[in-house]
Amino acid sequence: PMNIVEQNLTNAMEFHLMRLSEDPGLQLILFGLFLSMYLVTVLGNLLIILAVSSDSHLHTPMYFFLSNLSLADIGFISATVPKMLVNIQTHSRIISYVGCLTQMSLFSVFVCMDSLLLIVMAYDRFVAICHPLHYPVIMNSRLCGVLVFVSILFSILDSQLHNLIALQCTYHQHVEISNFFCEPSQLLNLICSDTFTNNMVMYFTGAMFGFFPVSGILFSYYKIVFSVLRIPSSGGKYKAISTCGSHLAVVCLFYATGLPVYLGSAVSSSFKKDVVSSVMYTVVTPMLNPFIYSLRNRDIKNALKRLHSTAF
């Protein structure tokens, strides 16, 4: 009987997502806009992965991490946008209990992967610039594989922590979510009455995938700057800095858009206040990453040209 009651509760649960706009005339425009952005993101990141895997010149730690970041970005945007497109097309804003927990879980996995891969890439640049002679020995294929595996493992653990807390909560019949997707910190804030548990999860997640990665990245670049200043030639300095430019741009974009979403959703439920940050974080950032790396990186551009000439 207990299982039947729990099953009925699960089937009856509905989460109501907010629409980006209540204006019916804008729905078709929003659908076309976000579908285009989604396709550009997936295509752009797939091209990066294809270029890295097909070109032997790019079989280096930096591009190995970049291809994994592109894969994470595809998962990141796929966790939220397809459901939003379906809701726009069907004029619905309902997501099921299972669907909401699945979306929260996938979002947590890929956003954490992004964060951890960015610090791994910062460490790679630190070793390349500060210890260039030892770089091939330190950044061997085994260490690279371990770093990516650990990033995936910690991301899955964080996701399961959110799910574990969510499954312990007492649900109401309907839950209104002031966002267009099941954002983890806001969802737990809405459905769980245990403030202490919510705060512990929020602080743990913020420390693991906010404070520590940012601290690690800042420390890496602190060391990089001092190493670059010791390079005698201006050409050498430019070459060293240019290898970090794309990564630094992606880091700034990721955290500048992500922190307002995380902090804002944890303390407030104002949709109008958070929607721009949410769109920038979940849609625009994954879309811009391949452009940042391909436009600023001669190796990627050359690999894409070779890929194009081979295909056509």
Rank of each mutant, 00 (worst) to 15 (best):
M202I: 13
G206I: 00
G206H: 01
M208D: 08
M208E: 11
M208A: 15
F209P: 03
F211T: 10
F211A: 14
F212D: 02
F212Q: 09
P213D: 04
P213M: 08
P213L: 09
V214F: 10
G216Y: 06
G216F: 06
I217T: 04
I217N: 02
I217Y: 08
F219K: 11
S220L: 04
S220K: 09
S220E: 04
Y221P: 07
Y222A: 12
I224P: 01
I224N: 03
I224R: 03
V225N: 12
V225L: 13
F226I: 02
S227M: 01
S227I: 02
L229I: 00
R230Q: 15
R230E: 14
R230F: 09
P232A: 07
S233C: 07
S233K: 11
S234K: 08
G235D: 14
G235T: 09
G236C: 03
K237S: 01
K237N: 01
K237H: 01
K239S: 11
K239P: 02
A240L: 05
A240C: 06
I241G: 00
S242A: 15
T243M: 03
C244Y: 05
G245E: 11
H247T: 06
L248R: 07
A249P: 03
V250K: 09
C252P: 03
L253A: 14
L253P: 03
L253W: 05
A256C: 13
L259P: 05
L259G: 02
P260E: 04
L263S: 11
G264P: 08
G264E: 04
S265A: 07
A266R: 05
V267C: 05
V267N: 13
S268N: 13
S269K: 11
S270F: 00
S270E: 11
S270Y: 01
S270R: 10
F271T: 06
K273Q: 13
K273H: 12
D274P: 01
D274T: 04
V275G: 05
V276G: 00
V276Q: 00
S278P: 00
S278N: 11
V279P: 07
V279T: 12
V279S: 06
M280S: 12
M280E: 10
M280K: 00
M280G: 07
Y281K: 03
Y281G: 06
